[in-house]
Nucleic acid binder design. Structure first.
Lengths: 258, 258
DNA sequence: CCATCTTTGTGCACGCGTTCACAAAGACAT
DNA sequence: ATGTCTTTGTGAACGCGTGCACAAAGATGG
């Protein structure tokens, strides 16, 4: 999960739990698929399967929105699509700026999933003067100098940061100062923002590391022993005149470090 | 957070809670920064601030790994870097294949964060014959026909899917059949995999929708009333001979839908 | 109009994760 | 060696999220 919540410590917003909010887009996607196939109604069981969740969880999630189902029948697909869209705020237009038009930024600019759901890329911004004016995804890249003006002129409240890590915090501060209150951060850094600003983080490297952890477990623990034995610097080695008090193996037991 | 856990229902692996595992890469990144600045030791308070978490949480997280700190002093940076790296399995080499070399796939191939931590891009694979042989990130793209051979020859156990949604499930099945047991999925689809295969999902569109939800809340609820009034299809409208039993406004109350 | 059957909506219990608060441990000074 | 001071490691309480299981609601058929 590349998701990284920040701030707003699990506050439930308007009675809807964060965990439920995070699943609404999932339901919406599944429902959109059904809608395109002109399926009129769907049961919690079917929809849950399509969204990859438990049906009881789905029903409880929907119960936070209201009683939109019909017992004995299920949920009206079109109606539910509308209700969830409205709840998520997708019935309105959200202008978005992407800052940092490198490989990732360009990929995001071209990503169809943005435009498809109320999100409109209002501008692409990069600090490199050589990029200025170059078209990416059919839109000219603008220089960072214009950032504040772009934000204000377009009423942008959501910013996407795809810059290198070193530039992210500064870009973030300029975005916030200009009026942005929600940030999607792809840079591998912890952003600090004032209260009232939401930050969500997508970190590709972290996701892979989590997978590696589970992968290593699956591969078995037999290699863990040798790895521990090859430990480079027990913390005691840092101490000055202290040789070792815990025996020849130091504080590194056979199988697992203490 | 673009993170989507799948399978392994919150099973704690080798006694280390999932939530802790998800934070280890964060700590590791902060520690790496300190290490580069040759900081010898760090307190839980300082490190927690750098990683953007609570210090008590950090100490508890580390306690699952073992007692690597020194009371009154803090943690030895180098030693902790090694221990976390080992725990995450980053001391070994992880060959990775990226399937689907569109805008996103190319961005991933160029992403430095992969190579920096034990992950080696072993191959880039795409279904488009026109892509075959074309160099991306200094590496020739190979055709999907070679998928199974590439996986087996390189001993790949981690696959990254960056294909369109329609192709993702099929690619996933081929990867799994060829021996991949961990998948990082960028396609906006729910992948179904057999037991023992881990899937993590990164969904850019979902992240934006979650931000939009909170953004809408910040903007106030005054617009919610009119939006509800403009509801297109109350579910009762679908029924045949039934006009309305709940009064002229149907089942849409003034402020919030029932 | 009544009986049956399907499916929702939810009360309840359980477990994980977070946080507090403090005792234990060790560094450091005297 | 002893005392003080800093910081870790963790016991315990709390809250959120999940899933079970069932009663209520409505559709459907006779």
């Amino acid at each position: 999960m590349a998701t990284g919540r920040t701030h707003r410590p699990a506050t439930r917003s308007r009675g809807i739990p964060e965990a439920t909010v995070a699943r609404l887009p999932l339901y919406l996607r599944a429902l959109t698929g059904l809608s395109e196939r002109s399926v009129p109604t769907v049961s919690s069981e079917e929809l849950a399967a399509a969204a990859g969740v438990n049906s009881a969880k789905l029903r409880k999630d929907f119960s936070y929105l209201g009683s939109y189902g019909t017992r004995g029948v299920g949920y009206d697909v079109e109606y539910l699509v509308y209700q969830i869209s409205r709840e998520l705020g997708l019935t309105q237009d959200w202008p978005v700026v992407i800052v940092g038009i490198g490989n990732l930024g360009a990929a995001l600019a071209n990503y169809g999933g943005f435009a498809s759901r109320g999100f409109r890329v209002a501008a692409l911004i990069d600090a490199d003067p050589a990029m200025a004016g170059k078209p990416v995804a059919g839109m000219p890249v603008q220089h960072t100098d214009e950032l504040e003006k772009i934000i204000k002129d377009n009423g942008v409240s959501i910013g996407v940061i795809a810059t290198p890590a070193g530039a992210a915090q500064q870009v973030c501060e300029r975005l916030v100062a200009a009026g942005v209150t929600s940030i999607l951060n792809f840079a591998p850094t912890v952003l600090s923002v004032p209260d009232g600003v939401d930050v969500r983080k997508v970190d590709l490297s972290i996701e892979l590391q989590i997978l590696a952890f589970h992968e290593q477990r699956k591969a078995g623990e037999e290699s863990a022993a040798e790895a521990a034995a090859a430990a480079p610097l027990p913390p005691a080695a840092r101490a000055a005149g202290e040789a070792d008090r815990k025996g020849p193996d130091g504080d590194v037991p056979a199988v697992m470090p203490a």
